[in-house]
């Protein structure tokens, strides 16, 4: 169960309400489970909550692997970089 998608933190306020960017989809996210997250971090988003902070390395690994499979990744690559 449990859909979760990676997205990059754009901003976060003192109440831990923030916004993330998931490939040009900007959405509000609650960061109470990742209180140390700072803008630029990659987070795993589930039901409006960030449930995990991903390392840049982990994100890169995942996307590098995916690029092998996906033909149309041109737009993706600069969104990550």
């Amino acid at each position: 169960m449990c859909l979760a998608v990676p997205a990059r933190l754009i901003e976060v306020d003192a109440q831990l309400q923030g916004f993330v960017d998931a490939h040009s989809n900007k959405l509000p996210v609650n960061c109470v489970m990742v209180p140390d997250a700072v803008p630029g971090d990659w987070l795993l988003i589930h039901a409006g909550f960030a449930i995990h902070r991903l390392s840049e390395q982990a994100v890169r690994k995942t996307w590098d692997l995916l690029e092998d499979l996906e033909r149309r990744v041109e737009e993706d690559s600069h969104a990550i970089g």
């Binding site: 859909l3 998608v5 998931a22 490939h23 040009s24 989809n25 959405l27 988003i45 033909r71 149309r72 990744v73 737009e75 993706d76 969104a79």
Partner: peptide, 18 residues
């Protein structure tokens, strides 16, 4: 599947909503 074009932002929004 590989030939069906889906924009990345659309694919990611679809993933977000399942």
């Amino acid at each position: 599947e590989e030939r069906i074009p889906v924009r990345p932002s659309t694919r990611h929004a679809a993933n977000l909503l399942g």
